[in-house]
């Protein structure tokens, strides 16, 4: 992985943290209560867990040159299914299994449209993005369904020293990193993303790979949806996971994975997701007025993207060179070729 690409997002993250510490000196302080860690940083991790999880799935989809806009809607559907089932007196485990099962089906649908029918991913997933919220509304009959189930509320609000939600997200991220980098899956995903036709002619199962990443992305979205609804003990078909696809895509891009497909970086996605969530939290802690929140967010995101772009890097290098033209660099005599 290219070091420089993850450097700037890390710097942005560090900058945001420093800003927070200046504004609220107690920002980094952690305290232990009933064996749980509490503190602002822990809140960031907990609130950022769904975005991070969705961003992991999104990373793989984007690596194959695709995009999945439907993740927010899928998250809403997952929450709606689980909550309606529990509200009707069902068991929490069955509720979750059912919700995730439906998410797999939705992922299969997306993957089918993209890999078999060859519809452009942005259009194919747009279908479910719009239709999905409608389905969630139907399930909840337009109501916000509140539930009270101690097992279910553990996913989003529970603690095992750290919040359960972030543990799940980190476990999935680590698992995917291991799975794709220890096996050849990562390389095959990248090769499909860089050049689908060449990959097909080399015997790569492009279709299966593409199909699989959409199913995986939908599954991640489903789990994230359970986290969101469990955190508030309610299913809100309208606002659960709203715009989360944008945050996830941003996290992936900030992390240095190109939207053009190909090389991807899960470590980058992790940092990217943290940047996004820290940013959201910072907006509240430093008291940015609500009406300029989005503008503030946009400025930071633009700054990170600019710093990362190769063109800016080249421009900076050029400026530096111009500043010291008199220094004669001894020319290495070794010829690099061969």
């Amino acid at each position: 992985m290219k070091r420089a690409q993850i450097l700037w997002p890390l710097a942005a993250l560090a900058g945001l943290l420093v800003l927070n510490i200046i504004v609220t000196p107690s920002f980094l302080s952690l305290r232990i209560q009933d064996g749980h860690l509490f503190g602002s940083t822990i809140d960031i991790l907990r609130n950022g867990a769904p975005t991070m999880l969705i961003a992991v799935g999104m990373t793989l989809v984007i690596a194959t040159r695709g995009i999945d806009l439907s993740v927010g809607a899928v998250a809403a559907i997952a929450g709606a299914i689980a909550c309606t089932w529990i509200a009707d007196g069902g068991n929490a485990v069955t509720a979750m299994i059912m919700a995730l099962g439906v998410c797999v089906l939705l992922g299969l649908w997306n993957g089918f449209l993209v890999s078999v029918l060859g519809i452009q991913p942005i259009i194919a997933t747009l279908v479910l993005m719009t239709a999905g919220r409608g389905v969630a509304m139907l399930l909840t009959e337009g109501q916000i369904i509140t539930i009270n189930d101690s097992l279910y509320s553990k996913i989003g609000a529970g603690f095992v020293v750290l919040p359960v939600a972030i543990l799940i997200s980190l476990a999935v991220l680590g698992g995917v990193a291991l799975l794709t980098r220890r096996t050849a899956l990562g390389m095959l995903i990248e090769s499909v993303g860089v050049n689908p036709e060449a990959s097909r002619l080399a015997g790569v199962r492009s279709r299966t790979i593409i199909w699989t990443v959409y199913v995986f992305a939908a599954l991640c979205a489903g789990v994230a949806g359970l986290m969101i609804s469990s955190n508030v003990n309610a299913a809100d078909a309208n606002s659960a996971g709203l715009w989360i696809e944008m945050d996830a895509i941003l996290a992936v891009v900030i992390g240095g994975t190109s939207l053009a497909g190909g090389r991807y970086s899960l470590a980058g996605t992790l940092v990217g997701a943290l940047v996004i969530q820290t940013l959201t939290t910072t907006v509240y802690t430093i008291g940015v007025p609500t009406n300029v929140t989005l503008v503030f967010k946009a400025v930071v995101v633009i700054a990170v993207c600019l710093l990362q772009s190769p063109r800016t890097a080249g421009f900076v290098r050029e400026r530096r060179r111009r500043k010291q033209p008199s220094v004669s660099v001894p020319r290495p005599q070794k010829v690099g070729v061969r």
Partner: peptide, 15 residues
């Protein structure tokens, strides 16, 4: 239809 341009010689060779 041949090279996977962004990947290394090694990855291309064993693809």
């Amino acid at each position: 239809e041949g090279v996977i341009a962004d990947l290394s010689v090694r990855d291309n060779l064993v693809l």
